[in-house]
Design a protein around this nucleic acid. Structure first.
Lengths: 239, 239
DNA sequence: CGCAAACTTGATATCTTTCAACGCGGGTGG
DNA sequence: CCACCCGCGTTGAAAGATATCAAGTTTGCG
């Protein structure tokens, strides 16, 4: 019973794993994270946490669930620009940022808290820098994906990215992870139609690249996929 | 004669205009920029200034010309992820960045210099922050463009972005600007085939949206285009 | 003048979207 | 407990957008 209570009382687990994998955290850093996480707020799926153009998202640590960053075009088309997964940061603002560049919506039941201040030079501060860099890398990968890959490549490439990130924060089991996204959301991230995504997924399943059933995704040979797609491991030279 | 010499001796003009439009620069800031620009290096078109994965690009001020940031897929497909225009910064590295995330190639005859250090709190420092933010906004816009716009919209949206940026650094004349890009490059930035881009451009010309002849582009009604595309002005709330 | 790079054109193949319908499963109210 | 309903996934057929291939044609420049 005690151990169970203990587990429930550690909402910051994913964040600690993720940030700890980016830099060596001190006891002070860990305490700051735990303190911040004690103030967690929770939102149900589909909540719009921040609206594009409204006042800025403060730097936020996502404790559980997934958040999508999206744009809506005047005629209603939606593009999901990127995701934040449990343990990652989002809304890290710049000194001059007056409004959010994208809307941020919960894809899941999410829990989040204000990201603790990092002292200059601390491990936490370094982890934050690496998060920023990783985020930039994800944007660049996304541009390449949408600009020059066909549907099948886009699906594999994004799933591969998600797997790598989830492995880093301890949220994957081997090459399998929980996929809270609806096919429609996934299509909006890949610049595809839900119908076409569905057919593409079936093709991927038939060719043995992946399975996706009941909210769980498995990539059968991530290394081979990464090689074919030109996805370099450790572009960030992370520890 | 003197005035002509003076003009030639000011390679930092575009940079001063651009950075000065982002924040109020002091005499000290201006002197730093001029000093840095005195050490300019020049490269001919097609030079690869930094190769992806090689050692980091140092923060660099582009004095003249255009630079493309690109990725090459294993089979040779190319995606141009973004551009740096005269007066803008690129290669601004993070403390932990060990290698460039994209290759950077000169599209033009370019001139560049090391970006001067900005003292914390200075106008120059603020301008750098805004540059960073603008760069991030451009990436997000690019994702939306590639993911959810058709060929015609992509063309107009990117040209609109370029026009806005060139106006800010004083490199446009009204709604007209010099376009050093080949149609093939432009296609690689838009995720299109050169052939299809060509046909799309013709459609845009016929419908009166733009003209592009002899390296000069004119947008005939930028405001209307921006409205149709849902492009908000001043997302950055710049002065 | 002549070459090479860039731009243009036409015909055809491939990929992706659109529209409309059907099935399945989980929740909910009667 | 069952019937209904709704969200989500799946399917088919046809239309639309984009890519490919293979010529021309123009342009700029030595």
């Amino acid at each position: 019973m005690l151990s169970r209570t203990y587990a429930i009382a550690q909402p910051e687990q994913a964040a600690v794993r993720r940030l700890g994998s980016l830099a060596r955290l001190t006891e002070t850093d860990l305490r700051k994270i735990a303190d911040a996480a004690a103030d967690a707020r929770y939102f149900p799926a589909r909540t719009e946490i921040v609206r594009e153009g409204a006042e800025p998202a403060r730097p936020t640590l996502l404790l559980r669930g997934w958040v999508a960053h999206q744009r809506i075009l005047p005629d209603g088309r939606r593009q999901i620009v990127g995701f934040t997964l449990a343990g990652e940061l989002f809304g890290r603002s710049w000194s001059c940022q007056d409004c959010a560049l994208t809307s941020q919506v919960a894809l899941d039941n999410v829990g989040l808290c204000t990201a603790p201040e990092a002292e200059p030079g601390s491990g936490l501060s370094l982890a934050y820098e690496k998060e920023r860099l990783a985020h930039r890398l994800q944007l660049i990968d996304n541009v390449t994906r949408l600009g020059r890959m066909d549907a099948r490549e886009r699906v594999c490439d994004l799933l591969l990215e998600l797997l790598e990130r989830l492995q880093r924060s301890g949220e994957a089991e081997g090459n399998t992870f929980a996929m809270p996204l609806t096919q429609e959301c996934f299509a909006d991230a890949l610049g595809l139609t839900p119908v076409h995504l569905n057919r593409t997924l079936q093709a991927c399943r038939r060719s043995g690249d992946l399975s996706w059933r009941g909210g769980r995704v498995t990539l059968h040979d991530p290394a081979a996929l990464a090689r074919n797609l030109g996805r370099k491991r450790n572009r960030l030279q992370l520890p």
